[in-house]
């Protein structure tokens, strides 16, 4: 359409150009995601014989100094502050007493190519409770349902910011039914945040197989049910990126091996 007046052309053209440019940055559409589901994965599901299944376990240690734990400031939000009688600290870096770290995602990074694993129908659960996400970090399989709850008496929004999956941002008022979501593409990791309460952050690792774990209160992890083979085990932490972050392991039938990792602050 022609501009009615010359002076209107500039803002109209500027807007059109920017909208077009921003369209190019909109990430992934449904067809892309369907194509990934339908064509890339092998058709035959791999069955692991329990009699030969192997295990890898270990701990994630830290060395050097760690940033001090940050107390979450919920004071401006009485609906959140009132849910806690004790101070609440950030879960970005959580050291354990034994020089290990909590909330480290450990997963089989390489070695399972060409295999397809059954997608669980049982949903993983992500809760918003006390104005923090529970759990802080979790793993799911591609297309596994994720059941998202709001157990708080306040409104949250759930906003994953993936690179390979589709971004979405949905509100959850108190007492609403759970949301069921899926992530159709592999991605380590997807940050999830609540923009209403900006301290609320969580991470979801999406993998095409069930071989992942998150370190616990003594820094331990265990990945069970692996078929015998050679694997690269990788770890991911939201803040600490340097150190020993991968290990190659060869697992014979029914074998159990232990590998430890070490993370430190970037120098």
């Amino acid at each position: 359409m022609m501009c009615l007046k010359n002076y209107l052309c500039l803002p109209v053209a500027l807007l059109a150009a920017l909208f077009a440019g921003a369209c190019g940055s909109v990430d992934i559409d449904d067809e892309d995601l369907d194509a990934v589901d339908g064509t890339e994965a092998p058709a035959v599901v791999t069955r692991v014989d329990p009699a030969t299944a192997a295990t890898v376990n270990g701990k994630v240690f830290f060395e050097g100094d760690l940033p001090r734990a940050r107390r979450l400031a919920m004071d401006a939000e009485p609906a959140c502050a009132g849910l806690h009688t004790e101070p609440v600290y950030s879960e970005v870096v959580v050291p354990n007493d034994n020089k290990t770290l909590r909330h480290v995602f450990v997963y089989v990074k390489e070695g399972l190519e060409g295999m397809k694993f059954e997608t669980p129908t049982e949903p993983a659960v992500l809760d918003q409770k006390g104005c923090i996400y529970l759990p802080h970090m979790m793993g799911v399989q591609v297309n596994q349902p994720v059941r998202i709850l709001n157990s708080d008496p306040t409104t949250h929004n759930v906003h994953p910011t993936p690179r390979n999956n589709r971004e979405w941002n949905e509100s959850m008022a108190p007492n609403v039914p759970p949301k069921m979501k899926k992530f159709p593409r592999e991605e380590v990791m997807i940050p999830v945040k609540c923009n209403v309460h900006p301290w609320m952050k969580s991470y979801i690792g999406v993998l095409p197989h069930p071989f992942f774990s998150v370190t616990d209160g003594d820094g331990s992890f265990e990945i069970t049910g692996l078929p015998p083979g050679e694997y690269t085990i990788g770890i991911w932490h939201e803040f600490l990126k340097e150190g020993v972050t991968t290990h190659k392991v060869t697992l014979a039938a029914s074998e159990s091996k232990s590998v430890d990792f070490t993370l430190k602050q970037a120098s």
Partner: peptide, 21 residues
Amino acid sequence: LSVPDWPLSYGSLNPPWEGNI
């Protein structure tokens, strides 16, 4: 992004007046 919808806010002209909303 604390209000996910537009032009209304949480489907309303008067959304819950909480947090970053």
